[in-house]
Write a protein that binds this DNA or RNA. Structure first.
Lengths: 187, 187
DNA sequence: GTGTGTCAACTATCCAGTTAGTTGATAGGC
DNA sequence: GCCTATCAACTAACTGGATAGTTGACACAC
């Protein structure tokens, strides 16, 4: 048994909660399962986080930070940016699931300040690149950004029924499709 | 009070369940609420459908049929097809929510036969149009179809945080973005 | 021994699913 | 036309198990 360490316990709880929420969502998640998988006790969850909802908040906070850090925008290579973001999603499928659960089960939440700031920053960077003629300005910068983000999430959001017919499994091929899609948007 | 009518009651239950599942998902939905909103009794749900899960099946069955019928593929105007599908989603936001819940909460389900057949049919039509040089064949037919479907769902799947920055609310503008995105894929 | 981290056991509530019984339509006998 | 048997549609009240959240006691570090 490792020695007592509040930070480590807290972290194990967040990790276990991330997995649980990604799989079952907020309503479907079970607090007992999270505690068990974190090798902790249910009372710890209430001690550290206060409620199931606030535990989800902590998971979400953690997630937003990670996603923003994972794929920094590169205005000189937007197809490459989309490809890298797509790779991140492919490597960690729980990211897209959590983003989706959050949208469905927390639709009333106010926008996440840090996320909005990061998005605004990226949109501004694209607008500037358009002004400098590095990128075509046919599309509004914000719309272009939304389309790029959306394209990067393609494989994580495509219906299994479509995948049953299309069946593109090779990660390189998937990445290439995302890249060339974004490239097509920039012509 | 309307006379007793099994079919009508069944339909009211499916309608109420559709709204409930769209809002709260499978785990979050409450059988009592569905019964109340359908002006029916909970026991009728179990009489007609057997379980909460099988009620969801009925809703899903109904939904698949509607979506397939709502926007028939037109290989001569794929941007228009995407725009029309996008309009359908805009007019009925519960469609995308249900599709999303289904993907998250029923990821283990076998592919829906009718949906797969419809997708296969559409992909075949695109492949044929490519062979006839009506559409460029740079992209595999299935991949192209997946991209078109994905583009049509853009506004229903874009994060509220992104929308807080981008803020494209006008339906005509939204439709036009979807249309031109698909057009760009076909160059 | 004092305070923080940990835990088993408890409680109150919620909720899917059941049951036993009622109501309303209808058809056949007279 | 009216009574009544039958069945399907419907309902209120109940049950048992699951589940979020609580409590009070114990253990280890200092």
């Amino acid at each position: 048994m490792p020695p007592r360490d509040a930070d480590a316990t807290r972290q194990r709880l967040v990790d276990a909660a991330t997995a649980e929420f990604a799989q079952y969502g907020l309503a479907g998640a079970r607090v007992d399962r999270i505690a068990a998988n974190a090798r902790a006790n249910k009372a710890q969850i209430y001690h550290y986080f206060g409620s199931k909802d606030r535990l989800f908040d902590a998971v979400w906070e953690n997630l937003v930070t990670q996603i923003v850090a994972a794929a920094p925008l590169d205005v000189d290579d937007l197809p490459g940016f989309a490809a890298r973001l797509s790779d991140t999603y492919a490597a960690r499928p729980e990211l897209i699931r959590l983003i989706t659960w959050q949208r469905l089960e927390r639709s009333g939440d106010p926008p996440h300040e840090f996320a909005v700031a990061s998005i605004q920053h990226n949109v501004d960077a694209i607008a500037k690149a358009q002004k400098d003629k590095v990128i075509p300005d046919r599309l509004d910068a914000g719309v272009l950004y939304a389309l790029i983000i959306h394209a990067a999430a393609l494989w994580g959001m495509t219906s299994p029924d479509v995948l049953a017919v299309v069946d593109v499994r090779d990660p390189d091929q998937r990445r290439e499709i995302v890249r060339s899609t974004v490239a097509a948007l920039l012509t």
